[in-house]
Design a protein around this nucleic acid. Sequence first.
DNA 1: TTATAGATTGCCT
DNA 2: GGCAATCTATAAT
Length: 216
Amino acid sequence: MSLSAPPRLRSEWNPLPRGFYGRDPRRVARDLLGKVLVRREGRTFLAGRIVETEAYLGLDDPAAHAAAGRTPRNYVLFGPPGRAYVYFIYGNHYCLNVSCLPEGEAGCVLFRALEPLAGLERMARNRGLNLPSLRSPAQLRNLASGPGRLCEALAITRPRDNDADVTDRDSPLFIAGATGPRPRISCTPRIGIAKAPDEPLRYLIRGNPFVSGPRL
DNA sequence: TTATAGATTGCCT
DNA sequence: GGCAATCTATAAT
């Protein structure tokens, strides 16, 4: 299924350094594919391989929350790189981003889909699914495919997880590197936005079944 | 103070 | 494919 095999053991989840995030969001979005998003819930660890991301460029990107300038909602985007930006949308769902670019510049990457690696039972429960449904390939695909589903599976909410440091292995939310060959990547327009809909800023692992929406 | 759109999802026909 | 759910940020009055 996947060309590169991400680590499934907690001891091998080593956070990426802050410098990884202090770059152009397009580069970060592409390089995050294949990496591992790790969620700690008490003693339980949930993890998934990042298979789909979108870049949001900051003040000059009309589709980005940062385009409105710094507000109480989006202040994390203007802070140091490598922090979680969590927001609530459509009265129903949370979405997870990570801040990019040096402090003072507001770019970010939206996480759109995960391939579940660890804690699948807990994810299913968080999503309101029963455990037998995990045996259905379709249900398994839907576990964390989509920005809202991903947050529900990992129980990511605001304000609790907003501004979490994803470079700290003791954080409730961090991102670990991966070994093995780099995944094959496709680039498409972003999904679900009305402004700047044609910019090719969505990145995905080619052919991966956990990607949401058009797979290309 | 009121109105509206929104980086989504799931259920309906 | 259509649309309601349901809250927040921001724009308009």
